[in-house]
Simulated assay, not measured.
Amino acid sequence: MKKIPYSINAMNQPFDITTRQPQLFVCRDFEHLKDVLEEFASKMAFMVGGLEGINKAIECNNTATCEYSSGLQVSGVFNEVITDENNSPIYLRTTGKTALAFGNKELQGHGIDYHKDGFGSPVGKWKQTPSAPELLTNDQLHALGIVEGKKAKLEFMSGIVVSGKVEKILRHDGKLLLITFSNCSAKYGDRVLFDPDWGTCDMAVGERISSVFNGAADKDAYNQVALVPKERTIKVPSDAKRKRLENLYAQVRKIRESKTGYERLGEIWETQQAAHPEDWLLSMEIFEILDTTDQQRQLKAKIEKFLNEKKAQTKDLTTLISWGFRLVEYHKKPEYQAALHASPK
């Protein structure tokens, strides 16, 4: 069998998993493998951003996120990008429900209910200043005539012109994210990008699109948390200790399904703590029952403290337990309850 030194060119090799492979790609060591994978990652949309990333978001026709260099994240179904003569993106647009976030947390007042009909905004530098717009200070904005409560006119290097009354200027971590205009007009040549009759205009700020990735930035707020499947396909062999733990799970499941016996949850949890201190998932299940039914608040607080201490032990546990808490909140949402009750028993 032919052996080929592993490189990024391996991605161009046809691969049929049902047949014997005619070659092997060989790495010198793990460092070699890491270097090639990092080279590949550097070409992915979440690293590249720009027009290439935006076009991938449009092609996928599903919820994606474009992140401005200011850190502002726009999540929605992207359907258009306008480019300049250098083929650089100067305006992007979504259709349908859209949310704005920073650091993967939705910005207050900028969720899918507010931006339910889509979102559009320019990208790029402003003519009036050589600096990246997200780095401008309040004094610099005032010098450009951008003051809350006053009319302003912004001209982009691309030729897009935005004018209107500045209602709000939003910053985060020192960077300018959004400028909200009323009575706003946005044009690119003869094309109207925003009309005053359309209402308030939230203009994103950022010199470029630095990253594009699949899904929403804040999946919880965007209602993009996956439902947990009821069936488990992985079967783990049981020894005597594990069978005792599984029995505790069965008792908790019976309490949850029958909606009786809540007073036994404390005893079950104490048993788990004494005999199976490494397990955290049962604690999360008990926590959710107590949270949903508003039972035994003192016990709930003890379990929450245990889970937070467990969460701090490793990076993996941080992720898993954080998602556990998120699911507890998500399971209380009306849309989840509706889907749960509509699903076949």
Rank of each mutant, 00 (worst) to 15 (best):
M1E: 07
P5H: 08
S7V: 03
I8V: 12
N9Q: 14
F15Y: 13
Q21C: 10
C27Q: 07
H32S: 05
A45M: 03
F46D: 03
L51Y: 04
N55M: 11
K56D: 11
T63W: 04
T65Y: 06
S75N: 12
V77S: 02
V77P: 00
N79G: 03
V81Y: 06
I82C: 07
R93P: 01
G96Y: 07
K97I: 02
L100M: 02
K105L: 08
K105C: 04
H110E: 06
G111E: 02
G118A: 12
S121E: 10
S121R: 11
V123E: 10
T129D: 14
G145L: 07
I146S: 13
G149S: 07
F156T: 04
G159N: 11
I160A: 14
K165M: 11
K165E: 14
V166H: 14
E167V: 12
R171Y: 09
D173W: 00
G174V: 05
K175L: 12
L177V: 03
L178A: 09
I179N: 08
T180Q: 13
C184T: 10
C184S: 13
G189H: 07
P196I: 00
G199E: 06
T200A: 13
D202N: 14
M203G: 09
G206V: 06
E207P: 01
S211M: 06
V212C: 09
A217C: 12
K219P: 02
K219F: 07
A221D: 10
A221H: 14
L227G: 14
I234V: 13
S238W: 06
D239V: 05
K241A: 15
R242A: 09
R242M: 11
R244C: 05
L245Q: 10
N247S: 14
R253Q: 14
I255L: 06
E257P: 00
S258A: 15
R264C: 04
W269E: 09
Q273H: 08
A274V: 00
W280L: 03
W280H: 12
S283L: 03
D291Q: 12
D291K: 07
T293C: 00
Q296F: 05
A301L: 09
E304C: 11
K305C: 03
L307C: 04
E329H: 05
E329D: 13
K332P: 02
Q337C: 05
L340Q: 12
H341M: 05
H341P: 00
S343T: 02
